[in-house]
Design a protein around this nucleic acid. Structure first.
Lengths: 347, 347
DNA sequence: TATTTTTGCTTAAACGTATAAGCTTTTACT
DNA sequence: AGTAAAAGCTTATACGTTTAAGCAAAAATA
């Protein structure tokens, strides 16, 4: 037996007034609506007794505003997105919003399905980590005037709200660090995608080489597909590190998942870090603590990314303006031993 | 400029019929409602042209059913819960449901807030990993007749729907394995909580000792608080492994987070596994691949837990019955070298 | 006392949807 | 031809909420 939730009507009947009066009182509009003191008191008392809770669905219908956000990440089981999701939920809650979520799995169709579902559920706005090739989906949102913010990655072709790490800068500094520490042939393993975060990271890598007077060698760049990336990362490493004359003397990894997988392979192959191979990772991981050499990594500011994303979305929702803002969040490099031939252990 | 979504009314006006007719047609009730062929055709055509999408909020209000679930986990940024969340979302989606989520952070107040918020948003049901001491919250749900399922943990005092791993069995087998492999003094590190999953795991541990004729020594059991557990885990390990005569010769860890943290400490302290200390973990982790000894661990069936949870909730929603079902999901032990003094490397 | 103002409430309409019930007009049957 | 049945639509109502507009009675003003 489901107990019926108490509605304004129930309270109105019990008190013997109209639902309008109850609504005025419970919304604190007693003054504007000139509600009598006695009635107001009785209504409040009865509402409390019956433990009245407003039906937000009905309110949502009335106002065309649900105070709900849709969050579409690539994969919620990826710790990076899970952390973002956690903070976003918190920030949303602070502002009276609740979060619907879904994983696109980097698949166009799933992404579109989630967008449609969320829109049909009348979310007030969307936070999206767009999948490769989803420009049309995003552009449609723009045309419809749906408030949304891209997070973690964006498209260079479309002007949108977006909050991303300063990826070029992050990678530029990482590679510069390697070079400063004496490495001559830094390589990079990245995902094979047109999404801006990858493009920017690769560009940062290349610019760091150029500014250091090192000529980029296409053999230093490995692009692996997102699907079964684990095998491809292993293969890429084998390519870099084959017996006769190593192609690279150091590596930066363009994402968290690539970092962890690469370290696994390096660990299994028994490659000496940083002597035989310098290494810099993207994002933190528990596994770093088990690597015999402390890992240098690029630390994204997840808190700032999430906060700015929610903030930007709120502005978009409130203002309904056509102005788009791109926010770039700085990252820092946490220095370990993995990026320095002259090991600083004991310093 | 937000473009107004097209409603039944818009279609009705364009076609020149009543909204009722449009509704009948678009819901495939042309036969029952005896709608003329010509009109039906025009309505469908216009609906497609205008790209009509039903407003699920309005439907929700009409039917008192939103096809939305609330998912409350302890912490979405914990990989264990993130994995569950991922599968639950998928299973929910298969059934036409969308998921609202939130992290309780093991805090009573947050848990209650999330429950309230979700109920006010008229979710059709809740999936909850209950926090310690939340019996009253859960019981209130029961009294209200809200469909819900507890996941991962439950309460022995309250009869509810619940889907949990067979925790007693899992831990029993793990400890038995240690003993079979020659360990005489198996210890355990667990969280200090009254939640059933911990109680059951500890009971499984004790029963395995008893059935093996080993007398339980209270020094073998360390209960650490959930807050700043990392320090407490380190302290517990120091207690177990102090210089003069080790208190235990092997350890089982009662959760994923305790496992990872313990392995970090063991790794940092340079303790030999499995020679000086046998080890069995709960749940998988990326970090296992970096440990010099392959880790034996209890592998919960996350897929089955999630599927059963959603399934059970659906039944609860559909039947509205007072019957509660408890589902226990078996786990398996993945054997590595960490639990065996006689290392089986090369076998 | 007659009029205006204020007070305290109710009615009605709306959001978008679904559906029972009702109302014409056409078709079928005797 | 006259009635019954079937076809094809519309109207009305509801879900729970909000809020403008309206109405009657009391209080204030002239």
């Amino acid at each position: 037996m489901i107990k019926k939730r108490v509605s304004l009507k129930d309270i109105a009947q019990k008190v013997g007034v109209s639902t309008a009066l109850v609504s005025y009182v419970l919304n604190g509009k007693e003054k504007e609506a000139r509600v009598g003191e006695a009635a107001a008191k009785r209504i409040k008392k009865v509402a409390a007794e019956m433990n009245y809770q407003p039906n937000l669905i009905a309110r949502g219908l009335k106002f065309g505003k649900t105070h709900t956000l849709g969050l579409i990440v690539a994969d919620i089981s990826n710790p990076f997105f899970a952390m973002l999701a956690r903070i976003i939920e918190l920030e949303a809650q602070k502002r009276g919003y609740t979060v619907l979520f879904g994983s696109s799995d980097e698949q166009l169709e799933k992404s579109q399905n989630l967008i449609n579902t969320f829109l049909n559920r009348q979310v007030d706005g969307l936070i999206i980590t767009p999948v490769a090739g989803s420009q049309a989906q995003i552009e449609e949102l723009r045309n419809k005037g749906v408030p949304f913010v891209l997070m973690d990655r964006g498209f260079s072709e479309i002007e949108t709200n977006a909050v991303v790490t300063d990826n070029h800068d992050a990678m530029y500094n990482a590679v510069k660090l390697l070079i400063r520490n004496g490495y001559k042939k830094p390589g990079i393993i990245a995902y094979d995608t047109t999404l801006t975060h990858m493009i920017d990271r690769i560009a940062g890598y290349k610019d760091a080489l150029k500014d250091s007077g090192i000529k980029f060698n296409s053999k230093w760049l490995a692009k692996v597909p997102y699907g079964n990336y684990k095998e491809h990362v292993a293969a890429a490493l084998d390519g870099f590190l084959d017996a006769k004359g190593r192609a690279v003397d150091s590596l930066v990894f363009a994402t968290n998942s690539i970092s962890v997988q690469s370290l696994k392979v390096i660990h299994a192959r028994g490659i000496k870090v940083p002597q035989d191979l310098g290494v810099i990772s993207f994002d933190e991981s528990d596994v770093f603590d088990f690597f015999y050499s402390s890992i240098t990594y690029i630390k994204q500011n997840l808190q700032s990314i999430s906060e700015n994303t929610v903030q930007s979305l709120m502005q978009s929702i409130d203002s309904r303006s056509k102005k788009y803002t791109k926010i770039t969040v700085p990252s820092v490099i946490i220095k370990g031993e993995s990026s320095s031939r002259r090991t600083t252990r004991g310093l």
